[in-house]
């Protein structure tokens, strides 16, 4: 089977544009999910009354439903409540809704890894609960959490592949369009796979490296 390189060159700008869009939405979505995850894990750790329950319900809802349905509900369903969001806003909110719970679990794992005696020695110098989280728990939890945060980033980046379903011109959407218009199936799919490899492979290799490094660079005490 020979490839139509001319076609590939002509479609390249489309893919480039789509890849940047994917990256932009993923970046914003991941950033938001980190924020949500951090807040949720702190609420769970502090056992803030009322909020704790809300956070637990959110985490279960988010983890046990597919992103596609979350997006459809946001994009098509909520307009009926008078809330109209642009495709891109929907995509970011959807990704953050999904990712927040995964990040929260990752942070929680890290927080639980901080030993009780560390916390007590923080308490004994008079740190408030929030100061304890800020200066003692999070910096230590973060190192432990790093590999799972990275894994979540890859997971969320992959999930962006369904953004095309709500009319966002991402890589999948471009591919589907090109297949429909030009029947250059093999070339378009080839570009699709290469595009995802370019985005995800370095990240995945970096993560493997990071994981090994964190494991060996444990804080000695």
């Amino acid at each position: 089977m020979s490839m139509n390189w001319e076609f590939i060159m002509s479609a390249l700008p489309l893919y480039e544009k789509a890849a940047w869009l994917t990256l932009k939405l993923a970046f914003l979505g991941i950033l938001a999910s980190l924020g949500i995850g951090l807040l949720c894990s702190i609420v769970l750790y502090q056992r803030t009354k009322g909020l704790e329950r809300l956070v637990r319900v959110y985490i279960e809802l988010s983890r046990n439903t597919p992103l596609l349905i979350q997006l459809f509900f946001l994009y098509y369903g909520l307009t009926k409540l008078g809330i109209t969001l642009s495709e891109q806003t929907c995509a970011i909110i959807g990704l953050a809704f999904l990712g927040g719970s995964y990040m929260a679990e990752a942070f929680r794992g890290g927080i639980e890894s901080v030993s009780k005696s560390q916390i007590e020695s923080g308490i004994s110098i008079g740190l408030s609960k929030l100061q304890l989280v800020r200066y003692v728990i999070l910096p230590q939890a973060f190192a432990v959490t790093l590999p799972s945060l990275g894994a979540n980033c890859i997971f969320l980046l992959k999930e962006t592949s369904i953004f095309g379903a709500i009319a966002i011109a991402d890589l999948m959407h471009v591919t589907q369009d090109l297949i429909g218009m030009y029947y250059q199936t093999f070339e378009t799919l080839f570009m699709l796979v290469v595009a995802y490899l370019i985005i995800l492979l370095p990240l995945s290799l970096f993560l493997t490296w990071l994981e090994r490094k964190v494991r060996y660079a444990e804080f000695g005490n």
Binding site: S115, E120, G122, I123, S124, I125, Y135, V136, Q140, N221
Partner: peptide, 17 residues
């Protein structure tokens, strides 16, 4: 109160970071 009562533990828990 804890500012007035200093405490040192068995496991010398300095903050490692």
């Amino acid at each position: 109160v804890r500012q007035q009562i200093g405490m040192v533990f068995q496991n010398y828990d300095l903050f490692p970071h």
